[in-house]
Nucleic acid binder design. Structure first.
Lengths: 224, 224
DNA sequence: GTTTATGGATACTGATACTATCCATGACGA
DNA sequence: TCGTCATGGATAGTATCAGTATCCATAAAC
């Protein structure tokens, strides 16, 4: 198929497809002549995957490129793929917390990892996020949200079990790789949406209509 | 304190603070003269909160403004606050899936919500995200990741229980509101980081070094 | 009384993700 | 075969976001 049909079938504008080609997200079509290329179902699937990552999972284009390279690699182990994907989807954070808050948080995270006997690289990006988040929560006076950190850790382990179960139902290694990668990324979108719903449900049932706060500051104003 | 000290203590550049003032994220300092204002600990706390939301939770500035307005409101119920925050942090998605995939996914979501007896608004943004994600997973041929949807739902309920437990340990209504809002938003960052760690651990232990895939496509190339 | 900081307004910047335009060439129907 | 239309490839333009930078009149601090 030519680019016009690819555009029609994917719902993505031709200039955008060309952009993805330029950015190396989409492999070039097979050239049948200097100005004619043909695309196939792979390209269509790729486009859908790209939009899933950008639209649903908010992965930036540069990250999508890395993810796709991981899927295309024929030498990476699954473990290496996961690591690379984790790095690709972890935004480079600006440090927000104070140094000693961070040090304390780092201790807490180290202990948590030991307690749960998690085998993770000491420079895994998620550790940095975790440390920074805990440090900031402390600084904001929200330590109490951390009392249940271990229970949270226990709960997320459940997710990985579910994911492993789902993924090992596939047999083709390529399929497994794609499942793991998509599961990692879109799984987060899924979990996050479910969590918001569970939260809304809980709020509707328990926190009710009548808990309001009296104020002391007069709030902020939007610019004119 | 004046703006220079606020800047020094928060680690945020003066022009950025001015920007937040312009955008209405930070209430103006108390004017002691036409060109002199004084800021207090509230402003410092606010700045930390702003950076936590933008840097850690990736909330866009417009969303931060809404979140802060929610915190400043003295009339909203907790339930209304949560709803508003959910709307503020749910990015407006572009529709990616095909119409019938979406219809099918919508049915599945409706059934899930019924099965779990969740009390949620039919137009809650998370429902849209969930529907779209499920539709896309199907389209990508990753249905098998959805077999465990109910278990996922069960697992996220655990989170809300933990959160409720943590939040109700506070007594001051203002504190509760801030805890709920911060818990909702930073809780996600926390869970997501924990999940990635659990995943890496699992991968290191189970998926091992020797599962690789043979390829049929030659992959994508970065532009020159 | 001079240097420095401040509030407020406005303009500029860099990154990201597209969109649009151009052009030489090739496909395709009349 | 001719004329129109689409295509690949290159380059330029746009919108949005999140700051940065500059200016200026005034006021604080030494």
């Amino acid at each position: 198929m030519r680019i016009a049909e690819l555009s029609r079938r994917s719902g993505i504008a031709v200039p955008t497809i060309k952009y993805y080609l330029r950015e190396g997200l989409l492999p070039p079509g097979e050239l049948t002549s200097p100005n004619q290329a043909s695309y196939d179902e792979h390209h269509l699937h790729r486009l859908r995957l790209i939009r899933a990552l950008t639209d649903l999972a908010q992965v930036p284009v540069a990250g999508v490129r890395v993810v796709l390279e991981v899927l295309d690699s024929d030498t990476m182990s699954l473990h290496a793929r996961i690591g690379t994907v984790h790095r690709a989807i972890s935004p480079s954070r600006r440090l927000t917390a104070s140094d000693d808050a961070r040090t304390a948080a780092a201790d807490q995270v180290r202990e948590l990892i030991e307690r749960r006997d998690w085998q993770v690289e000491p420079d895994a990006p998620a550790i940095g996020t975790l440390v920074e988040t805990i440090a900031v929560l402390r600084t904001l006076g929200q330590d109490h949200l951390l009392g249940t950190l271990d229970s949270y850790a226990e709960a997320v382990e459940r997710f990985t079990e579910l994911e492993v179960a789902a993924v090992t139902s596939r047999t083709d290694p390529d399929q497994i790789a794609e499942s793991v990668v998509i599961g990692t990324i879109l799984g987060e979108t899924l979990i996050s949406a479910l969590r918001l719903l569970a939260q809304e449900n809980n709020s509707a049932r328990q926190l009710g209509q009548n808990t309001r706060s009296k104020r002391r500051s007069e709030g902020t104003r939007r610019r004119a």
